[in-house]
Every structure is written in structure tokens, then in C-alpha cells.
Computed example of a mutant assay.
Amino acid sequence: MLAGVASDDVIVNILARRREPPRPLTIVTPEDLALRHPPRADCNRYDSLRGLHAAA
């Protein structure tokens, strides 16, 4: 490939991307699906759920 020259595959790829619809900026979550208690990063809680005989 010469410097500054694009192959036909590259051009077709660029044109195909321009035809894609724009992605939505935000997703509206219905109130029924909203988390009442957001997850916490708590490793001690995770370890307690695994039990005493879990493989380390």
C-alpha cells in the first residue's frame, strides 16, 4: 500500500460506519427496574457468602 492511499476495503468500512444509526446518549430505565439498594464492593460479605469450606 502506498503512503496516503487507502484500499477499497478501508473506504467501504468507513462508509458502512457512517450509515449506522447514532447510539442513544442515555438509556431510560423504568422505575420498576431501578435498584433499590445499589451493589457495594464488600469482599468480606462475599467471603461470608462463600462459606468456610470454599477453596481459596
Rank of each mutant, 00 (worst) to 15 (best):
A56V: 13
G51R: 05
A54Y: 10
E31F: 01
V10Y: 15
P22H: 01
R23K: 11
D9L: 12
I14P: 00
I11H: 10
L35K: 00
R18F: 02
P30L: 02
R17C: 11
R36S: 08
P39S: 04
A41D: 11
R45T: 10
E31T: 01
V12Y: 07
P39E: 02
P21C: 00
L25Q: 11
D47P: 00
A56G: 06
A6Y: 10
R23W: 01
D8S: 10
P22L: 01
S48P: 00
A54Q: 09
E31K: 01
L35C: 01
R40L: 12
D42V: 05
G4Q: 06
S48E: 14
R23N: 02
D32N: 02
L25R: 14
R50N: 08
P21E: 01
S7D: 13
C43Q: 10
D47H: 05
L52V: 13
E20M: 15
R19A: 08
R45C: 06
D32L: 02
L49A: 13
I27T: 09
L49K: 12
S48A: 13
Y46K: 12
N44E: 12
Y46D: 09
A54G: 07
D47T: 05
A56C: 05
R36L: 05
R18A: 08
I11A: 09
A56K: 15
R19E: 10
R45F: 08
L15V: 14
P21Q: 02
D9W: 04
R23Y: 03
T26K: 06
A16F: 04
A6G: 01
C43T: 11
R40V: 07
E20Y: 03
V28L: 03
D42C: 12
A34D: 01
A41Q: 06
A56T: 13
M1Q: 11
R40S: 08
M1L: 12
R45Y: 09
A6W: 06
T29Y: 00
G51H: 07
P21R: 02
L33E: 08
L52R: 15
P38D: 03
R40Q: 12
V12H: 10
D42R: 10
D9Q: 08
L2P: 08
D9S: 13
T29N: 00
E20D: 14
R50F: 13
S48G: 02
V28K: 06
V28T: 12
C43H: 05
S7N: 10
A55F: 13
L2D: 14
G51T: 04
A3P: 15
H53Q: 13
P39Y: 05
V12P: 00
G4D: 12
S7H: 07
L2H: 12
I27L: 10
D42F: 04
N44M: 07
M1K: 08
V10Q: 15
C43E: 09
P24L: 11
